[in-house]
Design a protein around this nucleic acid. Structure first.
Lengths: 334, 334
DNA sequence: CAACTTTGCGCTATCGTTAGCACAGTTGCT
DNA sequence: AGCAACTGTGCTAACGATAGCGCAAAGTTG
C-alpha cells in the first residue's frame, strides 16, 4: 500500500508537504498542491485512517449493535442510521448479537478496541457487567431497549402505550378472552408491553380474568408454536394481541396454516406494520411505530453529541408514540 | 482512555511487559502475567486496535457493501456474513449504497482508508473507474452482481436459469402473453435474467411476440407502477413474471390494491421467497434462491482466502442454482 | 537599505503497540 | 568451578500521519 512518504519521495518533497497538500492546508502553493494531488492519484495513494487516528484524530466509525438484521424493525434502523451517518462521513460497524449476551460482550469490547467514535446499541435482555463497563469508555446511545438503570441517551417507542392501544381496540370491540403473546419478562420492553396490556383492561374497568399472557420469545417460532397451543385449548381466546414484530409473523403463519378464518373465528392485532399486513386476508390490523423517524432522530442527535463534546448534565430521552392501523382482522363481538 | 503505558507505570514495570503479558507471550512469569491482567482489568484498559495495526498487524474489519439492507435478500447476506465472521473474530463495516455509484465510490475509498482486511461487495450497475482502482488495493469478492470483466472472486445465483425456470412454468401452463418486470438493462444480473426469459420461449419453440419486457427498476414503486400500467392495457397479459425481489412486493401490492383475482384473472410468479408468499391469497408461486447458503459459502471462502494469502492464479466462481416453489398463483390456460 | 512580515516548505517529535536486541540473574551441565 | 543455556524483563526502533517549530526566500514598509 502506497504511503505519503512514497508520494513525497516520488516528487522530491517532504512528507509534511504531501500531508498538507492533501488536507487543504492554506499555507501551501497552488502549484505544489496540484502536483501532489496528481501524484498521489497516479500512485494510488489512499490515506491511512488508523495512523491518522493515532495522532489524536477521531474515528469515523460508529458501532451499531442489533439483535437481528433480518427483522425489518432493525433493518430499518440500520438504513436510517446509515443515511444519517453518510452525510457526515461516518460509517457503521455492524454487530449482530442474536440476543446472545456473550456475543454482545465480545462485540462491545472489539468495537471499543477498534476505537469507534461511539456506539448505538439495542441491548440484550441482561447484558454482562463487563459490557456496561466497557461501554462507558465511549459515547453511546441505547435504542428501543434499555439496560436497567443505566444512564445514557435513549430513543425508543412507547412500549407501554402501544400495547395498551391495541388491547383497548380489542376491548372496545367486546373482546375479553384476549391472548397476549410477547417477549420474555426479563426484557424491559416486553414487561412494559405486558403492563400496557393489563392497563387497557383496567382503563375500561374490565376483568382480565379471561385474558391470557404468554411470554417467552420474540421469534417467529415462538409465535407459531403459541398459536398452535392456543388453538388446541377447550375455550379458545377470541382475540390475539401480538407483542413483538417476529411474533406477528409466526402468528400469521400458524393461522394461515391452520386455515383459521379471520376475523370470524379469531381477531388479531399485529405488532409493527410490515408491507404484507395490507395483503393478508382482509388486511391485518396492526400497531404502527415510526421506526424510521425514531432511528433518524437518534442518529442525528448522536452525531450532534459527537461533534459537540461538552459534558451534558442529563441524558436525552425520546419516546416515540405508536398508532393503530385498523384493517380487517378484528371482529366486533356481540 | 487508559493505555498500556499507564498500566505499566501503575505496576512499576515496562510497557513491553504489559504488552507481552496480555498477548500470551510465553516468556513471562505467571506471577507477572496475573498482576498485569488484574491491573489492566481494574484500570479498564482496552487495547488500541488501530495502533497495533500500524505495527504491521492486520485489521479484523471486513467491508460489506450492499445496495439496500431492508431488502430481505441483502439482510440475509448480512446475517450470514456476520455469522461466518463472528467465529473468526472479524467484524463488519456496513455500507449501504442505495445503488448510487457516487456513494459506492466514497464508501469504497473510506473502507480502504480504514484499512479493512477485505471487502465483500454487491456492486452498483456501473461503478466508477475510481471505485475499481481503489478496490484493487485490498482482497475483495463480489456478490450477486459482477462489475464488467473485472477479475475477482464471485458468488451469485444463476440469474439466467432462475427466470428461465419461472417462465417455463408459465409457458407449460399455456401462457404466452407474459409480462416480465425486471431491473434496468445496465445491471448485469438484470440482463441475464431477461435473457433467461427469452430463452424459455425458445426452449419450447414458442413465439415471444405476445410477451412484454418492462425493464427499469428494482424497487417496490417500479413494480407497483408497472402493474398499474399493465392492467390498463387493452389486452392485458395473462401472467406476470417478477424479476427482482422488491419488484415482487410492488406487484403484489398493486394487485391487492386493484383486487385482481389471482390466479383467475392473472397468474404471477414472484422472485425470491419471502415468508408472506405462503400467506398471500392462495399462496404466491415463487423462485427460491438459497441466499443464505450462497452468502455463507462466500463468507467462508473469503475468510479462508484472507488467512491463506498465497496468490491464487484464477478467481473463484460459484453459481448457486434456484428452484421454483409452486403455490397457488398460477392458473392453467386452456 | 535595513528591519520586518509573509509565504512556502522541511525537520522532528509524537500517538500506542510490538518485535528485536540487550542484559542481568539463575539454573544446568561437564 | 567454569561455561553455556535459559528465563524474565527493559530499551529502542519502528509503523504512517500530522502539529508545531524553524528557517530560508520573497515581499513590504519606513
Amino acid at each position: 500500500m502506497v504511503t505519503a512518504r512514497q508520494v513525497a519521495e516520488h516528487l522530491g518533497v517532504s512528507v509534511s508537504t504531501v500531508g498538507r497538500a492533501l488536507s487543504q492546508d492554506p499555507r501551501i502553493s497552488a502549484d505544489t498542491r496540484m502536483r501532489v494531488v496528481a501524484a498521489s492519484h497516479a500512485l494510488g495513494y489512499v490515506e491511512n485512517g488508523p495512523a491518522r487516528m493515532m495522532r489524536g484524530g477521531s474515528s469515523k466509525l460508529v458501532g451499531l449493535i442489533l439483535p437481528d438484521i433480518r427483522n425489518t424493525f432493525y433493518a430499518t434502523i440500520a438504513q436510517s442510521m446509515s443515511q444519517c451517518f453518510d452525510k457526515e462521513g461516518f460509517h457503521i460497524a455492524l454487530s449482530i448479537t442474536n440476543d446472545d449476551r456473550d456475543v454482545e460482550a465480545r462485540h462491545v469490547k472489539d468495537l471499543v478496541s477498534a476505537r469507534v467514535a461511539g456506539i448505538v446499541i439495542v441491548p440484550t435482555a441482561s447484558p454482562r457487567r463487563e459490557t456496561v463497563a466497557t461501554l462507558a469508555n465511549v459515547p453511546y446511545a441505547q435504542l428501543l431497549r434499555r439496560i436497567g438503570m443505566l444512564q445514557s441517551d435513549w430513543f425508543g417507542i412507547d412500549d407501554f402505550d402501544c400495547i395498551r392501544l391495541g388491547t383497548r381496540h380489542l376491548l372496545e370491540l367486546g373482546h375479553r378472552r384476549i391472548a397476549y403473546i410477547g417477549g420474555p419478562a426479563e426484557l424491559p420492553t416486553a414487561s412494559d408491553r405486558v403492563a400496557g396490556f393489563r392497563k387497557a383492561f383496567a382503563d375500561v374497568g374490565a376483568s382480565s380474568g379471561e385474558a391470557r399472557e404468554v411470554l417467552g420469545g420474540t421469534t417467529d417460532e415462538f409465535g407459531h408454536a403459541t398459536v398452535e397451543k392456543l388453538l388446541r385449548l377447550r375455550t379458545r381466546p377470541t382475540a390475539v394481541m401480538c407483542g413483538a414484530v417476529r411474533v406477528t409473523s409466526g402468528v400469521v403463519d400458524a393461522l394461515s396454516e391452520k386455515q383459521v378464518v379471520i376475523p370470524d373465528e379469531l381477531s388479531v392485532v399485529g405488532f409493527g406494520d410490515p408491507p404484507w399486513a395490507r395483503w393478508w386476508g382482509k388486511g391485518l390490523t396492526t400497531l404502527r411505530m415510526p421506526v424510521q423517524e425514531m432511528a433518524t432522530s437518534c442518529g442525528l442527535w448522536f452525531l450532534h453529541s459527537l461533534r459537540d463534546k461538552r459534558v451534558r448534565t442529563h441524558e436525552h430521552r425520546s419516546i416515540t408514540p405508536a398508532s393503530i392501523v385498523v384493517r380487517g382482522s378484528c371482529a366486533k363481538l356481540r
